[in-house]
């Protein structure tokens, strides 16, 4: 029988560290603002996440600091930022896994709102509209009294596997192509197409999918550097999905 002793919640120890956060500050709303690095010191606490550290900074040191947190549990995808050079979810990053000096910057590619806050929502809505990331059905009206159509349980699980994307933008920020091409759909977009391609409820054919991703701002713009795959906080199988989509779309084109 297992037991829960020696968990972090009960175990005490660890020496106290003082963390220094170097944060890239810029407020586009303020004409006098210039991009600059600002440093803050925070006493580390046990189980401290970047969410807790940044809240502490805003509430006790600098109320002007902008950032985005919503669920603070790694579910909503709001808080992706560049942590020591790489995109990741700040709420899920424990300070104990970092050195005492931590550099934070906003995600690139997305429109900057201020400091660590970027407008991923606007970008993602644009992507959704462009790729039409919804199931395209034949009938508009669903007969709500009748039983649902059946689906293979394993297929449902496979679709959910790809549906787990939280649109945090980490993949786009980690993408070499997206740095250079503002119109690139990113792994998030390609993963969505792969997801709807898998879904038998979606009546779109490969030809239809080609219409939305069959060019250099779509799957053929991808250079397979796979920064996306390596930073995805949900560990989505992006490498396989993008390759799968590339093969399918190349087949359409030939």
């Amino acid at each position: 029988m297992s037991n829960g002793q020696n968990n972090t919640a009960s175990g005490g120890k660890t020496r106290q560290r003082t963390l220094t956060f170097h944060i890239l500050r810029y407020n586009p709303q303020d004409p006098d603002s210039k991009p600059r690095m600002q440093s803050y010191q925070v006493e580390e606490a046990e189980g401290m996440t970047l969410f807790l550290a940044l809240s502490e900074i805003r509430e006790h040191q600098d109320p002007t600091l902008q950032y985005d947190f919503v669920c603070r549990a790694g579910i909503c995808g709001s808080c992706s930022m560049v942590i020591n050079g790489r995109p990741g979810l700040a709420c899920r990053t424990l300070t104990q896994d970092l050195e005492t000096d931590v550099t934070l910057a906003p995600l690139p590619v997305f429109e900057l709102i201020g400091d660590l806050s970027v407008n991923t929502g606007k970008w993602m809505r644009g992507m959704s509209e462009r790729l039409e990331t919804w199931v395209h059905t034949k009938e508009e009206e669903v007969n709500l009294s009748k039983a649902e159509s059946r689906m293979d349980p394993e297929l449902a699980e496979q679709i959910y596997e790809l549906d787990r994307c939280v649109e945090c933008g980490s993949c786009v920020a980690a993408c070499g192509t997206a740095q250079m091409r503002q119109d690139f759909v990113g792994a998030v977009g390609m993963n969505k197409i792969a997801r709807f391609k898998l879904d038998p409820r979606d009546v779109r054919t490969d030809d239809d999918f080609y219409e939305v991703v069959g060019d250099d701002s779509g799957v053929f713009g991808c250079m397979s550097l796979l920064g996306c795959h390596d930073v995805c906080p949900k560990e989505l199988p992006l490498q396989t999905q993008i390759a799968f989509l590339r093969r399918k779309m190349a087949t359409i084109g030939c």
């Binding site: 059905t137 649902e148 059946r150 449902a156």
Partner: peptide, 15 residues
Amino acid sequence: KAVRELAAWGLPWSR
């Protein structure tokens, strides 16, 4: 009805 509508809209309910 809500479950069935969502199913038709593409929600991957466990089966």
